[in-house]
């Protein structure tokens, strides 16, 4: 078991104060290891994006700490920040908004090289840009001189991945990387992320609302609801043997072509759904271990 490259330790994030306090994240703890992916699954408002933003240092935790390679990250010194920036890279959800329409693809890939790999100079820069594009299965001659609006959504997302890889990071935070892509290109991009994770021994935080894709990409999974991680553990275990009522609810609602809506056995009763939601939203302190590594909060 390798040491965690990035870890959140009992992190809480609240916004606002008094009557309008929003508990976006409550007592969140998870860790990212080299060559492994953690899927953070939840609906909108569950707090998963807040966790991503904290991992990227866009938000500061209200309480708790972020550990980078075992050491608490203070963010006081410039070189500490620079090292963190190089080590932790992000891939955004919207392939259209995450590239600057005024610059070519080559420019987008040169910047991280100039900022984080100063030892690469001159003609080597363009050679590295070519290599990065090849790695994400794009043709450098075709793609490098183009502007973002000339590429498809899937191609843009691959460019985003290339840009993240350019800095030679240790962790990649992927915030719903395929939810805005056409269905038929999603798996290609997820495959690419998976390959990169293995080839480059990266830690991957994969944030999604689509629990079916989690099995595809991640060894571990954490299910979030209303700011808390309600169940976590190895992906296969959690999906095949869910314990927490919310996880079960989530899994039962995933479209399954084998089960028609008419089937009375699978009908969701609105009262039950509301009860589960209410209970899962309340802070739950107790944790039970269902099997080695598989934990859930107890209602």
């Amino acid at each position: 078991m390798n040491d965690a490259i990035l870890a959140l330790d009992t992190v809480t994030k609240t916004f606002g104060h008094g009557a309008s306090t929003v508990h976006a994240a409550r007592a969140i703890s998870f860790s990212l290891h080299a060559g492994r992916a953690l899927a953070l699954v939840g609906e909108s408002g569950s707090g998963k994006t807040t966790c991503a933003r904290m991992a990227m240092r866009e938000y500061q935790p209200t309480t708790g700490q972020i550990l980078h390679k075992g050491r608490p990250f203070e963010g006081a010194k410039a070189d500490e920040i620079a090292r963190y920036r190089r080590s932790v890279q992000m891939i955004f959800q919207d392939p259209f908004a995450s590239l600057n329409p005024a610059h070519t693809i080559a420019h987008h890939l040169r910047r991280p090289l100039k900022l984080h790999r100063p030892n690469i100079r001159g003609s080597q820069i363009d050679a590295t840009v070519r290599e990065l594009l090849q790695r994400v299965k794009l043709d450098p001659d075709l793609v490098a001189p183009k502007y973002p609006h000339e590429l498809s959504g899937g191609q843009r997302q691959r460019v985003n991945i290339a840009r993240a890889l350019a800095a030679q990071p240790e962790v990649i935070v992927a915030d719903e990387p395929t939810s805005m892509l056409d269905v038929s290109v999603r798996l290609g991009v997820l495959n690419l992320l998976n390959d990169m994770k293995k080839e480059m021994n990266l830690g991957l935080l994969y944030i999604t609302h689509d629990i079916a894709t989690a099995r595809y990409v991640a060894e571990d999974i954490a299910v979030m609801y209303s700011g808390q991680i309600v169940e976590w553990g190895p992906t296969g275990e959690v999906i095949d043997n869910p314990i927490h009522p919310y996880t079960r609810l989530l899994l039962s609602a995933v479209p399954d072509p084998d089960v028609r809506f008419d089937d009375p056995r699978t009908r969701l009763r609105p009262e039950d759904v509301d009860d589960i939601r209410k209970a899962a939203a309340a802070p739950q302190e107790k944790v039970v271990e269902a099997s080695p590594g598989h934990f859930a909060r107890s209602l």
């Binding site: 609906e43 909108s44 609302h209 689509d210 629990i211 609810l249 989530l250 039962s252 609602a253 995933v254 479209p255 809506f261 969701l268 609105p270 759904v273």
Partner: peptide, 9 residues
């Protein structure tokens, strides 16, 4: 989200 989708449909 997927649970609301299920309820509505």
């Amino acid at each position: 989200d997927v649970v609301v989708q299920r309820e509505i449909l």
